[in-house]
């Protein structure tokens, strides 16, 4: 009856804590990789949210993070805050984060339903492969927005050399420099998500039927009482 109305307490807590995690990932100092290259954790946190929470809770968590940031909490990258981030030239990436989390959530849920996440050796690889989907999704929103707001062409056309103005485009400025870092973060997020699914089975998928049956029991009872 009321199965789809609202979130359960567990979902509310997961959504709120993951929104908090995304926000916190922009606040803590950067982590240095082995080569000394610093990485920020924001993309990692977004991908992890999609892979761990499933589509609807990930949508809620990332939207909640965006709403709090737009409402004025300084939780966007580099301590930025407020509406100027969304209306600025990089605002498309924020929309891309929401879309990417939902897409990843669907993939992760499908993997969980097929029992892939329960298999130890396969889970991390499958989650990393799923996470890689997020990269084109984020840029599919971010790049046209950047190109539109800064008047750059989307693709470099007739590019001949470094000093050629034709080489400056949204793809060469807004995508290529970030791809290596993105791949590293997605790999990390896939490994961490596989560990989480092993430590807490039933966040998504197969064991969900049992958990849901348990949480639905009081409601069925109420339905019987009201009928």
């Amino acid at each position: 009856m009321a199965k789809n109305r609202g979130f359960t307490a567990q979902s509310i807590a997961l959504v709120a804590v993951f929104a908090g995690l995304i926000a916190a990932s922009t606040l803590v100092p950067e982590i240095a990789l082995i080569g000394g290259v610093p990485i920020t954790l924001q993309t990692f946190a977004i991908v992890l949210t999609g892979l761990v929470l499933g589509p609807w809770r990930a949508l809620a968590a990332v939207s909640l993070y965006l709403v709090l940031g737009l409402a004025g909490a300084p939780i966007f990258a580099n301590g930025a805050a407020g509406l100027a981030v969304l209306t600025g030239p990089t605002g498309g990436y924020l929309i891309g984060f929401v879309a990417a989390a939902v897409v990843l959530g669907f993939i992760a849920q499908a993997l969980a339903h097929r029992g892939v996440l329960a298999r130890r050796g396969v889970a991390a690889g499958a989650l990393i492969a799923a996470g890689l989907v997020s990269i084109p999704v984020v840029y599919a929103f971010g790049v046209p927005w950047l190109a539109w707001r800064t008047g750059m062409p989307i693709m470099p056309v007739g590019c001949t050399g470094l000093t050629d103005p034709d080489c400056v485009s949204a793809v060469t400025v807004g995508v290529v420099p970030f791809i290596p870092g993105d791949i590293v973060k997605v790999v990390l997020a896939g490994i961490v998500a596989a560990t989480i699914h092993r430590a807490y089975p039933g966040l998504l998928g197969t064991t969900r039927t049992r958990a849901q049956a348990a949480s639905d029991a009081p409601e069925d009872e109420q339905a019987a009482a009201t009928a």
């Binding site: 979130f7 709120a16 804590v17 929104a19 908090g20 995690l21 926000a23 916190a24 606040l27």
Partner: peptide, 20 residues
């Protein structure tokens, strides 16, 4: 629910940062 989520998120930010 929105109100609970917003309040919990504001509380969860320092908690998640502390854990990290």
């Amino acid at each position: 629910t929105i109100g609970v989520m917003v309040a919990l998120t504001l509380r969860a930010i320092p908690e998640a940062a502390r854990i990290l």
